[in-house]
C-alpha cells in the first residue's frame, strides 16, 4: 500500500470533486483515474477504501449492480429514476 498518499487526502479529494460536480457518479476505478489528481488516484484499492469510509460516514451513496460493479455517487444525487 502506498506511503505517498493517505486515506484522508483521498477522501478529501473525492468530496472536493463531488462539491464541484454533485451529480457525478462512477466506479472506484473511474474515480481514481478521472476524479482525482494523479498522485491521489494511483492506488485504486486505496481509493476504494476511501470510498467505503465516506460511505460509512453517510457522505456517499453506492449501488451494486448485477455485474458486481459498484457505482458511487454523492448522497444528494441519490433517488434519481
Amino acid at each position: 500500500m502506498s506511503t505517498q498518499t493517505s486515506l484522508p487526502q483521498i477522501a478529501a479529494g473525492i468530496l472536493a470533486y463531488l462539491q464541484r460536480h454533485p451529480n457525478a457518479a462512477d466506479t472506484a476505478r473511474g474515480i481514481a483515474r478521472w476524479w482525482l489528481p494523479a498522485p491521489l488516484g494511483q492506488d485504486v484499492e486505496l481509493v476504494a477504501h476511501a470510498l467505503d469510509t465516506l460511505l460509512q460516514q453517510g457522505l456517499l451513496h453506492r449501488q451494486v449492480n448485477a455485474d458486481r460493479q459498484t457505482i458511487y455517487s454523492g448522497r444528494d444525487a441519490r433517488g434519481q429514476g
Binding site: 451529480n23 457525478a24 462512477d26 473511474g30 449492480n65 448485477a66 455485474d67 458486481r68 455517487s73
Partner: peptide
Amino acid sequence: RRDRPFVPLNCGALPDHLVENE
C-alpha cells in the same frame, strides 16, 4: 455530460434473466 454519471455495465457478466431488471 461530464458532470453527470458514468455507469459501466458488463453485459457478459449478467445472467440473462436479470438483464431487463438491470
